[in-house]
């Protein structure tokens, strides 16, 4: 089975869940409650680490619940890499759909070519953006980065739609971000998304990562051409940019004969 099929299933299920969970809550079933900023499954608390960090940083107050809600997302991040982004984030799914829409409309290919300096340049932009965002947040004293956290906004808007039947202005922020995906290839996830940048800081080298396990491949570079974050999956599988989407593994033609590139734990 292709990894993309599994990934798309997980994404669609997540998208369905953000509508089903509030629907259950309207019927007063509170087993699963919350949005992607912070969610309770039974008694297990899960929260967006950046959101919790911001509120710790702004208020200087830490409680046990905050710490407990950080355990699962950060453990997932450490052992499986940034699978939140590529396997579950609803915004990533929308961005992929925008890309395929663009292809269907017959626009010319707008994917930037991979060069060796690309990942480091992207790193500079996204960490600078996160840093500036945290400074602004500290000065204002309000967790403002939550206002541009796409997955949280999408899920909370789904909740508002299901519960009250209207949407609030935050949806417009996501729609504007999504609109520019038509012109700049995956710019939000690659350069700006503060949640993804903050998560990628917890990358552990021995966690799950893409790796080329055979030295002699046919060097068709189809993995580089398929990579949504513009890195070289053959050598930079441990990069902070990689979100373990597995597109390179699907694209590799050598994989049909002999395992060449795959997810590994070290």
């Amino acid at each position: 089975m292709k990894i993309k099929t599994m990934r798309r299933t997980a994404q669609i299920l997540t998208l369905a869940a953000i509508f089903i969970i509030p629907f259950m809550n309207v019927w007063e079933l509170y087993f699963v409650k919350g949005t992607f900023y912070s969610m309770d499954i039974g008694n297990v608390a899960i929260a967006d680490p950046l959101a919790v960090f911001q509120s710790m940083f702004a208020s200087g107050k830490i409680n046990a619940y905050m710490i407990a809600s950080l355990i699962i997302p950060i453990a997932l991040m450490i052992f499986f890499g940034r699978i939140w982004c590529s396997w579950f984030c609803p915004y990533y799914l929308f961005a992929e759909w925008v890309e395929s829409l663009r292809r269907k409309l017959g626009f010319r290919d707008f994917r930037p070519e991979y060069t060796k300096t690309m990942p480091s340049r992207a790193s500079r932009v996204r960490f600078l953006f996160l840093f500036l965002g945290l400074i602004v947040m500290g000065v204002i004293g309000v967790p403002v980065l939550n206002l541009i956290s796409a997955p949280g906004i999408i899920s909370s808007q789904a909740l508002v739609v299901v519960k009250f039947g209207y949407v609030t202005f935050e949806l417009a922020i996501v729609l504007v971000i999504l609109f520019f995906e038509l012109f700049y290839f995956r710019y939000w996830c690659r350069f700006f998304c503060p949640t993804g940048t903050f998560l990628s800081m917890f990358r552990w080298k021995r966690g799950m990562a893409v790796q080329k396990v055979r030295n002699d491949c046919s060097k068709c570079h189809s993995c580089i051409k398929s990579c949504p974050v513009i890195i070289n999956p053959m050598t930079e599988g441990e990069s902070l940019h990689c979100n373990n989407c597995g597109d390179c593994i699907d694209a590799c033609q050598d994989n049909l004969n002999k395992q060449t590139i795959k997810f590994t734990f070290k």
Partner: peptide, 8 residues
């Protein structure tokens, strides 16, 4: 400062 807008 504390509210993370999680809507719970």
């Amino acid at each position: 400062e504390l509210c993370i807008r999680c809507a719970r």
